[in-house]
């Protein structure tokens, strides 16, 4: 595991904590797109189905293929799943009245349908698990679109929301560096599905990163988009 990968994962983990902290501290989920959060739960659910495989190996005491990396991945996968479901749960229960649903107008089928079709066509293996994994990679790349649309609609974001978006966008950018590093150092490593999707994902954050850094440089992370 290289430094870029571990940093990326920790940044991703931080993004959940920032969002949960923001929602708990302000008792509000204003400015956060429920649709984007819902897509992330779907992304992790489809991607981490191999948890059952690991669980199966553990309950049958088949530890031969369980490495340190397996344990690390399993731990993080469970955390990511728990955090994203918890966020969706909070947004639909105690914080529902503060949810920006009226402005969260993105049509989810506009990303769900193309991602499903692409996953059926462009995958490494035509098996259910592999197609769902590929679908999750494609969907994650564009899952931020409702959030970006809400940000444009609102025209501004408070500083915790900005930090959250920086963390969730920055993590995939670090994965890009990790992939370059692995491609250069590991003879059999190549994962073009993730590379292309990861590039699209990072590119979608391009404008946001620009405004974020301008704000950070001026000593304030609250964003106000130019009108």
């Amino acid at each position: 595991m290289n430094i870029f990968r571990i940093s990326a994962d920790l940044l991703h983990l931080a993004s959940f904590f920032i969002l949960i902290f923001k929602m708990k501290a302000t008792k509000s989920c204003k400015g956060i797109s429920f649709k984007t959060q819902l897509m992330y739960t779907l992304v992790f659910t489809c991607r981490y189905l191999d948890l059952f495989h690991v669980l199966g190996m553990m309950i049958t005491f088949n530890f031969a293929h369980i490495t340190g990396l397996t344990l690390y991945n399993t731990f993080m996968k469970i955390l990511f799943l728990a955090a994203s479901y918890y966020i969706v749960y909070l947004m639909r229960t105690e914080l529902k009245s503060t949810s920006d649903d009226a402005r969260d107008t993105f049509v989810l089928w506009h990303i769900l349908a193309p991602c499903a079709v692409l996953a059926l066509i462009f995958n490494a293996q035509f098996t259910i698990l592999e197609i769902l994994w590929t679908f999750s990679i494609y969907l994650e790349a564009v899952a931020v679109m409702p959030q970006l649309m809400l940000l444009i609609e609102t025209g501004e974001a408070d500083s915790l929301s900005s930090h959250y978006m920086f963390a969730v966008g920055g993590y995939r950018a670090l994965y890009l560096v990790n992939w370059v590093y692995r491609y250069a150092t590991e003879p059999y490593y190549s994962n073009w599905i993730a590379w292309i999707a990861g590039f699209v994902q990072t590119a979608l954050f391009g404008d946001f990163f620009y405004y974020y850094f301008v704000k950070i440089m001026s000593g304030d992370a609250a964003l106000k988009l130019p009108t």
């Binding site: 990968r5 994962d9 991945n73 990511f80 490494a124």
Partner: peptide, 10 residues
């Protein structure tokens, strides 16, 4: 194998 390498990330 190759597929293990592809799926060792999060």
């Amino acid at each position: 194998g190759d597929s293990d390498v592809r799926h060792d990330e999060l």
